[in-house]
Design a protein around this nucleic acid. Sequence first.
DNA 1: TGTAATTAGGAAAACGTTTTCATGTTCGGT
DNA 2: ACCGAACATGAAAACGTTTTCCTAATTACA
Lengths: 336, 336
Amino acid sequence: MRVTIKDVAKAAGTSTATVSKVINGSHTISKATTDRVNDIIHELKYHPNSQAQNFAKRASMNIYFLTRLDKNIAFENPHMFEIMSGVQKILDKRGYTLSVKGVNEKEACAVVEQAVMQNSADAFIVHASVISRPLSRLLIESESAHIVIGYPNFESRLCWIDTNNHLSGEIATKHLIDSGFKRTAFIGGRAGDMISWHRIKGYEDALKEASISVPKTFLKQGDSTFHDGRRMMLQLLKLKNRPDSVVCANNYIALGAVEAIQSQGLSIPEDIALITFDDYPFSKTVEPMLTVVNIDVFDMGIQAGNYVLNKIKKPNFQVQSYTTLPELIVRESTRK
Amino acid sequence: MRVTIKDVAKAAGTSTATVSKVINGSHTISKATTDRVNDIIHELKYHPNSQAQNFAKRASMNIYFLTRLDKNIAFENPHMFEIMSGVQKILDKRGYTLSVKGVNEKEACAVVEQAVMQNSADAFIVHASVISRPLSRLLIESESAHIVIGYPNFESRLCWIDTNNHLSGEIATKHLIDSGFKRTAFIGGRAGDMISWHRIKGYEDALKEASISVPKTFLKQGDSTFHDGRRMMLQLLKLKNRPDSVVCANNYIALGAVEAIQSQGLSIPEDIALITFDDYPFSKTVEPMLTVVNIDVFDMGIQAGNYVLNKIKKPNFQVQSYTTLPELIVRESTRK
DNA sequence: TGTAATTAGGAAAACGTTTTCATGTTCGGT
DNA sequence: ACCGAACATGAAAACGTTTTCCTAATTACA
């Protein structure tokens, strides 16, 4: 038979109310009683029944994490795991549970709707890729604690946390400029890729600020793949007056670019410096090791977790957005 | 005010017991009553309070998924997401919730121990990378429903589901042999990499079965990276009597190998055919598209989910292991 | 010293289900 | 027409906490 709060109360010679208060850290119990109850709890190896607790507290102690979870996500969005990890670490500390829901836009709505009705989640952490207008409305109207990871692609009153890709682009470009490079090119993703788009804008702004102008042909856009990275880099190398440095919108493109440069007998960074974004494992295993502008996604998860827990406690707490700052990690590929 | 089961009972002119039975699909309720109750449920927009349900049922309706969740996992083990996805899909259907726990070996033990004591999980799905002897003992002694994804690296009575890497190696090699290649090499991971090890064994067995013998130098082992893949492939190409085909233990090695082959002005599959394992997104974006031996990891997740749910219902159900079958996907890289 | 304020702790209700068991009703078979 | 079996339903207990009052005891203050 399980040991319940009643057993503890009896053994400690108190009421269950007192035991409950000790467990939940109420300050209306004297030190002496608290100690005694805690001793008994230890002795009897009492563990509160979490379902009973949740039930009595009218809280699910459950946070939903909604994201796409399909075949390619690990490569397209490798950060997801680490964000999840950060979130989970925080929730764990506070006794919350992280429920992962692999959904598309449509399913996300259904899941949240059901959870709101059934009260089966205390908050929602939603990846931007599954946010839709209906979902946005749902979250806001139900007054659910929530946070969006990344920026929803439309205006809304949702709370979100994101990286500053524009700033990342600036930092990367500025690093090259500061290192003495004058002719910096950019290889980016396609038009619809907002992350790449912001990084491009940052690149352009950094050039403008340094009063450097480069040919229009220095900006390339294509798929975010090794293959297209190589292809575009080769095009850049064929220019009559080729760039002395290049910013790659992401690691896959960078890998292709590295390959292209080396295939032409050129070397990095002597002939062309190269910088990219996000610190993937192969940023360090490739030759030369890549300089990157990174963001601490684990920390992003921690912040997101803290935010929703705080929001659960104090629903009036009003903050709409967080932005995490990028950091420059200088390695061989830009070291002159 | 929330609408509760009592409201439904009152409106339907029945007892709460009847409503409860309707909700839970007991077959002792007449069709007429069932319909009437369901109508009322719809009309009143009643949604059972899940915490109350869990409490009354003494079930947490929670399944823990324990896995490493660190920075590199998305690349080292990109399958994880999809397995998770498969599991979640099944659990969702049955009203269970998937709680993801990012843990190392040590933490895994603590998490399971606590969950067992508090009764906060109905089953555990554990990735082999966080399995330890103490955890194994814990799971077995507590008689918890569980399944290990992958094979624990020691004998135990744990239930597990895994792919047949040995068979995969055989299939890959046999495909090359059947396509008419006579001199097949293998580029594998390091000695400790059990996945690679099994694939190598499969390769050797397939050669043996076809009575083909190749030089010892045809078997290379190194890191599972683009870089080492290229390096080892270049070594193979330098052999006086070079191979006409190669099996790469994984996609990263394969990518390096492709690069190495093409850098020598050779072409795939005309000069050298190439086959690898697991269908990653870049298997299709690389030139030429790679033939792979794949396993359906989503389906693996589904099976794992089904298994634990079944085990929860029927604790006596005795099956210790599942093995999923690999399938060959022929693309350009082996098409003569 | 008397009174108000504070503190420590307990009794019992409440939370919303499920489940057990008893009961009345219907049915098939003789 | 009668009997036992099968069926459909309901009353009430149970699940293990938290929480809301309430009371008694102590303290603080004038």
